[in-house]
Design a protein around this nucleic acid. Structure first.
Lengths: 179, 179
DNA sequence: TGATAGTTTCAAATGGTTCTGAAATCAACA
DNA sequence: TGTTGATTTCAGAACCATTTGAAACTATCA
């Protein structure tokens, strides 16, 4: 059976999307399922995906659940069909916002909290310190502040871009060209 | 021996920084070494770090090399001392730019290349297709384009922000507030 | 050139994550 | 409520990246 260009392109994209995701701490399979749904117009059921990606039922189930939790795909029920179907968000802009918000919540917030605690700990001890020790503590505080400031600025920027909506990125880039 | 707040804060930050990095596809140890150097004013040698982080010589060597490759830390030689010392970039802004550029080069560029190939493959076949097949192929092309456009906009924005320099992020966010 | 301190390399071990497959559970319908 | 088909769970298997430690290598100095 001759494969069409569309089929080959699909396979190629799915593979690469999975590889890229793996480099960003997202499981290859989760990304592959997402890629498959992103490219497909009709909703797919679990068996479709197991067949297409050659994965086990358990694996499919776990990763589908995660994708739903992230808000990147949706469950769909067809009347008169007991199976569940899934579709992906196809608005890339929306996808991006979802991913950024989730990762911020899961990974950035904990480190910000830690940094604030570190700052507080050292600041509390600062007045009891003298000489070299005091200088060192002050430098350490600067370092913590450096990262905190960065994250704050990053949040500000991403919120501003989100606020601009779907064309936000391009608009923002254009605006900044002339800044 | 009583630990100072500064020492505890250091340990806490190093641990969390490593955990965060692990969630982003960067090895825990690499990030811990980086965190240690980021907080320390004097350059450290390999043995200092092995001791401090409880890691083997080989591990330290490999990760130090990677960090140097990324451009996040520098080798330093002290006259009359055969050992190599290392320091980290402490300008968070610069750090950020370095990381974004590296990851773009390593992870984003390959997927962009793949997407362009996918597009080309499908586009070439498009004129031979009719009816439903043609519609499907057109939708697939839209999906590929969607991601490509997104990456292009993202590149544009990050370049614009880089161009603004150290205060770029904050400036950009402020500008966009009023857009 | 030999001796020594320092660094890199690499095969093997480890540890942690992901995946499988079958049993348990759940939900819809008669 | 029982039957059936779909989904979830989970213990063990498989897999992969990281780490170790020792040997090889390199550079410096006497």
């Amino acid at each position: 059976m001759q494969r069409t260009a569309a089929q080959e392109a699909e396979a190629l994209f799915i593979r690469r999307w999975g590889e890229m995701a793996a480099g960003w701490g997202i499981s290859r399979t989760m990304a592959e399922i997402h890629a498959l749904l992103y490219l497909t117009t009709e909703p797919l059921c679990m068996d479709d995906m197991m067949e297409r990606l050659q994965i086990s039922r358990g694996n499919a189930s776990m990763n589908l659940r995660q994708l739903v939790n992230w808000g990147l795909i949706q469950r769909i029920h067809h009347r008169g069909d007991r199976r569940e179907y899934f579709t992906a968000e196809t608005n890339v802009w929306q996808m991006f916002e979802t991913i950024i918000r989730e990762r911020r919540r899961r990974e950035v917030e904990p480190i910000v909290e830690t940094l604030e605690r570190c700052q507080a700990m050292v600041a509390a001890e600062l007045k009891t310190l003298k000489g070299k020790h005091r200088e060192d503590a002050e430098i350490q505080l600067q370092r913590f502040r450096g990262i905190l400031d960065f994250f704050a600025a990053m949040n500000g920027l991403s919120n501003a871009v989100f606020r601009l909506g779907p064309r936000g990125l391009a608009t923002a880039a254009k605006l900044l060209q002339h800044a």
